[in-house]
């Protein structure tokens, strides 16, 4: 049994910080396991629309992303304010999507390819024209599983 020898000695006992690194390491491991690396920095504004009937996107490793929106302020000088498509880290044109899908497909295992999903992260204020073009390209590339990325909200309007 523990003996409380220092009791009543007067000076406040110091807290041992020896276990502090362990606590921090536990936190660190928690974050390492529960998060994924940020792969791209978005160069287009991303205010996603809200929806109530959302589903979680499973298997993040099988998801490729297409970002569409107005270029952020820093890029507006070069790319203007019309909504643009971003693939990986660069602005792209509609014609580049097919190559992008092909290269994404190459990266995956043969038997996982049919499960691949394309997530469309489109800004609310984009017009459907560019989205439709992207969808047509995806159809041509035979990447038919898509996901309209939305925020989860309780009610709309």
């Amino acid at each position: 049994m523990a003996k409380f020898q220092r009791k009543g000695k007067g000076a406040a006992p110091e807290i041992s910080t020896a276990s502090l690194p362990d606590i921090i390491f536990i936190l660190l491991f928690f974050f390492m396991v529960s998060t994924v690396m940020r792969e791209t920095t978005t160069k287009v504004s991303q205010h996603l629309p809200g929806a109530t009937e959302v589903k979680k996107l499973e298997r993040k490793s099988l998801v490729s992303y297409i970002y569409i929106g107005q270029p952020k302020r820093a890029f507006q000088g070069m790319y203007g304010t019309e909504p643009r498509i971003q693939l990986n880290d660069a602005f792209a044109r509609v014609d580049d999507i097919r190559d992008y899908i092909t290269s994404e497909r190459e990266k995956r295992d043969e038997n996982e390819r049919p499960l691949m999903t394309t997530s469309l992260k489109v800004d609310e204020n984009t017009r459907m024209g560019v989205v439709t073009d992207v969808k047509q390209e995806l159809r041509k590339a035979n990447a038919l599983k898509i996901n309209y990325s939305t925020r989860k909200v309780e009610t709309i309007n």
Partner: peptide, 24 residues
């Protein structure tokens, strides 16, 4: 290390409406 991981990773879960496009 902890701060590095906090900054370099994302925790947001992607949610959205899943659809299947018709083949060409």
């Amino acid at each position: 290390l902890l701060i590095f991981f906090l900054v370099a990773t994302t925790m947001d879960i992607d949610t959205g409406l899943s659809r299947k496009l018709p083949p060409m």
